[in-house]
Design a protein around this nucleic acid. Structure first.
Lengths: 194, 194
DNA sequence: TCGCAATACTTGATAGTGTCAAGTCGTGGC
DNA sequence: GCCACGACTTGACACTATCAAGTATTGCGA
């Protein structure tokens, strides 16, 4: 149960971002909350942007896990819907991570090879899922288009729900799930036709 | 050509956000660049968040214009593709605005009735376009699902291109347009079936 | 057991930030 | 003439990231 300061700080940062967004995040406040001096966190994360990088890294790893995993292969459509559901579920359950992962200005993932790799892996996971959905007959270009469409749809849904106006328009969780399902199902019909 | 300070400040802020993202935006720096005291901008925008609100307001107005406008009504698919193209084009051409518009933590649009109205109008514009696409026979619920799907797809594409990893994966503008077109076309096939 | 180097912090100082609270200065209207 | 008001300045405060230097503690090789 003894948590290292590094873990404490990271956790507090993620919590803050989930609740307030990344903008006002203060190293000093986090340090004060943890009962250490204002420079203590700085020792573990050399830089303010370094902590965002770390959050993104953690996020991409979690993301890959959440997206992949055993999926019954009944039919194409089912995969698409599952993918969307998982994407949105992940974003909601991990707001703090999700909000950082796709903000290039916060965490320049290019600077950290590890984070870059995690991000690439996450994308590959998505590509694999889409490939499975499309089938072997499809060309690489088709898969690329399909994957982008799939990704965009899920990503758009997730961001609009988390930070955008969709949050208010669909209050209850049951509504949200139903909407995501309907939307994904509708889109899947188009995606199926290779 | 004489620009009021208010206009100057707003313009500088939008430019900054487009280039660096909203996080590091500094009132004082903008004031210094404009050659005025550090409190001068504060006189026009009572608050740091007020300027983001103003940017969002401007953005939603521009957005409505960009999205609507005359569209040849040949077939459903065409409307969907156009909508996506316009959405993405707007986001790229107005990065500074777009980045702010959908960040609830920056500009609480709920606080400003004017901005709220502009945002609602923008959504209505989108809904109208989708209604046209779907046809009169569709139920309200179907339109709602369709609109959400459409919106999510376009929004996801735009954000992934602007801030996300898609930016690197598609370098040239021609590639981008082709990709957006393909993706939208593919999705449209699913959306068409009421 | 001594020393020593690395680790995990603390303390202090600097520059930059938003924001409150007072000025100043010119212009239009009574 | 004056006076009120808008546009701006000046000064101060609390807060922030970050640099630089100090101090414990701990593990380890001689």
């Amino acid at each position: 149960m003894t948590q290292t300061l590094r873990e404490k700080v990271l956790k507090a940062a993620v919590k803050y971002v989930a609740e307030n967004g990344p903008d006002g995040l203060s190293f000093r406040q986090i340090a004060a909350d943890a009962g250490v001096s204002h420079q203590a966190p700085y020792h573990h994360f050399g830089d303010r942007s370094a902590i965002f990088n770390e959050i993104a890294l953690e996020g991409f790893k979690k993301f890959s896990e959440a997206i992949s995993g055993p999926a019954r292969v009944d039919e194409d459509r089912e995969i698409c819907v599952r993918l969307c559901e998982r994407y949105v579920d992940f974003a909601i359950a991990n707001k703090g991570h999700f909000r950082v992962m796709f903000r290039a200005d916060l965490c320049q993932i290019g600077e950290s090879p590890e984070t870059q790799k995690a991000a690439d892996d996450a994308f590959d996971t998505l590509l694999d899922a889409v490939s499975e959905m499309v089938g072997d007959s499809a060309s690489i270009d088709q898969i690329r288009v399909q994957a982008t469409a799939m990704w965009s749809l899920a990503h758009g849904l997730a961001t609009l729900i988390i930070d955008g106006p969709l949050e208010k328009k669909i209050g209850k969780v049951s509504d949200r799930r139903a909407l995501v399902r309907s939307v994904a199902q509708r889109a899947a019909e188009g995606f199926r036709r290779g």
